[in-house]
């Protein structure tokens, strides 16, 4: 039906390429998540996100509840070593509202 070679035969990093200029959702080490528009990436998963919102989850001492706080950045470079996963934000339904 569809010539989908470009999608299915690609390497993992090519899937990130599809998200260029799109909202993505990034899971990061240290209980962090970030959404933003992907402007650049490389083979180390270094990325640059525009209008990014970072969510940091943490436990306050003596409490069981996971709390979170958000931090915004107009443009941020995220070093690849802290990136755990990258997803198209529209697929997750967690857009940068």
């Amino acid at each position: 039906m569809v010539d989908e070679k470009s999608v299915s035969a690609s390497e993992p990093l090519d899937l990130i390429r599809l998200c260029l200029d799109e909202q993505i959702f990034v899971k990061l080490r240290g209980n962090r998540e970030m959404t933003g528009k992907l402007h650049a990436y490389d083979s180390h998963c270094n990325i640059v996100l525009g209008d990014a919102t970072e969510t940091i989850y943490y436990l306050e001492s003596g409490s069981e509840d996971v709390k979170s706080r958000k931090e915004k950045s107009e443009l941020v470079f995220v070093r690849g070593d802290s990136v755990m996963s990258i997803a198209d934000a529209s697929n997750i339904g967690k857009t940068n509202a």
Binding site: L20, L28, G30, A40, S73, E74, L75, F77, V78, S82
Partner: peptide, 20 residues
């Protein structure tokens, strides 16, 4: 971990092209 940048000094379209 992060480097926060000044958006005014980045050409994001060019950056995307460079990534491609």
């Amino acid at each position: 971990r992060y480097i926060h940048l000044n958006p005014n000094s980045v050409d994001t379209n060019l950056l995307q092209d460079a990534s491609r």
